[in-house]
Design a protein around this nucleic acid. Sequence first.
DNA 1: TATGAATGAGCCTTCATTCAT
DNA 2: CATGAATGAAGGCTCATTCAT
Lengths: 197, 197, 197, 197
Amino acid sequence: MAKKTGEKYQNIIEAAVKVIAQHGYHQAQVSKIAREASVADGTIYLYFDNKADVLVSLFKEKMGAFVQATRERIELLERADDRLRELIYMHLWQMSQNRDWAIVTQIELRQSDPVVRAGINQALKEYLKLIDEVIFLGKEQGVFRENVEHRVARKMIFGTLDEAVTSWVMNDRKYNLVSLVEPIHNLFINGLKVEKQ
Amino acid sequence: MAKKTGEKYQNIIEAAVKVIAQHGYHQAQVSKIAREASVADGTIYLYFDNKADVLVSLFKEKMGAFVQATRERIELLERADDRLRELIYMHLWQMSQNRDWAIVTQIELRQSDPVVRAGINQALKEYLKLIDEVIFLGKEQGVFRENVEHRVARKMIFGTLDEAVTSWVMNDRKYNLVSLVEPIHNLFINGLKVEKQ
Amino acid sequence: MAKKTGEKYQNIIEAAVKVIAQHGYHQAQVSKIAREASVADGTIYLYFDNKADVLVSLFKEKMGAFVQATRERIELLERADDRLRELIYMHLWQMSQNRDWAIVTQIELRQSDPVVRAGINQALKEYLKLIDEVIFLGKEQGVFRENVEHRVARKMIFGTLDEAVTSWVMNDRKYNLVSLVEPIHNLFINGLKVEKQ
Amino acid sequence: MAKKTGEKYQNIIEAAVKVIAQHGYHQAQVSKIAREASVADGTIYLYFDNKADVLVSLFKEKMGAFVQATRERIELLERADDRLRELIYMHLWQMSQNRDWAIVTQIELRQSDPVVRAGINQALKEYLKLIDEVIFLGKEQGVFRENVEHRVARKMIFGTLDEAVTSWVMNDRKYNLVSLVEPIHNLFINGLKVEKQ
DNA sequence: TATGAATGAGCCTTCATTCAT
DNA sequence: CATGAATGAAGGCTCATTCAT
């Protein structure tokens, strides 16, 4: 039904990101997005099934690019621990590069209704799969412990990065997010404990 | 103006948790909460300023008890690493004990509007402070590394636990959440890396 | 049912005048009047049938005193034109003496619902009767023209005074209302026309 | 935001007059007005900012036409006393022509809240200005006395006409309002006093 | 394809009144 | 007589979606 291509399709998605970032999820009415995209309200329904579809599509498009960029970069590296560092870097760097997107993904889109949430979670799986791959590789390479539960490690990696970005956005991005790459990586690899002498 | 005590006050909060867990945030109308609490709609406004106040109060009450219970338990232990394990345990155990509360806190309340969010974040700070205390203690005791950034560690601990519970709720609680205590604690303490022989 | 006497009865009426003058008709809730009168909400219903009854009683009490005071004063005078001047004077003087009452009667009570209006109109009749008496006397005395329609003259007298007070209240009582007595009386007696030489 | 023109705009205003006249101000819900105008509730908000705006617009539209029609008619006449008679005639005639409008303007709209009142008073000023013009002209022409306070005269003229129409509406229009033109005019011009022989 | 005017379902909150104490 | 906690009905407004042009 909805033609999910074309210049206007992209325009609408960009407009939605901008409007949500600027006015917040609850003030991002269809008509406001339409105005920002310089189309009529009804035109949005030629490209999307409904408002939720706009939000899910937006997340999928952006998240798809996000994951792909990350994957391309980490696959240039050999060792799993280096890949992990690169994944952390890409996550924080990409978020810090796009102010609007960070606000939308960390704050605003979390207010959305169950339908949108379901779509978002679907899109997130691709990213979680990427994280899993790094963990599995690390085990294969003997770089990560065999007895690490990969599901737990995945939660730690994603949960920490997510919390880091949310916290950074909520604190009005007062510090350099990328500066957290090394401390986070260090913590993931070495844990909290003091090394035995 | 609002009398924030009494049996009805508690009833309304319990009713709100139940209704939100059962019907979702966007279907938790004041009248539905009132019916569940066996009071008239107007009675809610004798105890709360408005609907947002119900939600914020609910979170503060529950979160306050959550933090206090956790604090009481961990302070029985000496070592920071044991306290961390107890904190992880209490977090996961308390969430797994109360199905409704887990749904409300991990899924539904995140959809709330900025006013509610602000109140929630305020209440969360107390918990983050508790996590910080454990980290600082660990450094003092020489159990955790001095060079660990406590803000980063705090994000790791909270982010991981939060993600773990969310994931568990979203997967319809198919597994035992408390079984994650040891793997998570192990990961936090030892990190991913293989121990040198 | 309602016991329309006693100290509290008076207190409630005075409280109602004060609250309405201060907060406006639409912000004059029963509970606010009760608090001002230092009684419980329910107590009001021991002295009045309902809220409308408070307002009507209030108007009747005050208007009764208003009319009686006016009547007593004008009956001291012989000539109808002097009585008319005194009536104008009493109307404007009494209103200018009691700020709250002027606001209540000219602005706030006009916003009331039909039931209250009906009660007010009833109470007003006594005053209109007094005006009529002056007109009839004037005709008898040969001071006022016989061919003046008394109903029309009554409307002129009441309408003008009413408009004068309303206008004065709405302009924040910036001028001395009593200074209008002579001009108004003059206009009533002589009309607009230039006297023939 | 509100598009204050078009056929529907007029329809809604007419519907509002009808509904208010028929059911009273406090029973004139937006949905009732919408039904009467054969539009959806929401459509009203395409043409008006809110309910108060409907009422204020209604008054302004009607009052504007009222004043203009009166102005056009009186300006055909030379003498100020003739103009005054025409103004009285137009006031009473226009009111007696439109039963609903008379009820709305004399009874129902006076119950409105402060916001609406403010809008109404603004619109009334134009009419008071017209009355002033007649008074000034009369003085210039030597038809009215120079020492008549124009503000007082204005209050007499408006107050009397307003009271006459209100009284007529409240008495269920049992008599012919226009029959009051001559007596009122006579009273305004000649006053109450008996002419000296 | 594109438009944008029209639709109408849905909900938080107030406050006059009651009645058990 | 007096209290005041509890009741519950009622309505203005928003905004995603449609459809005639």
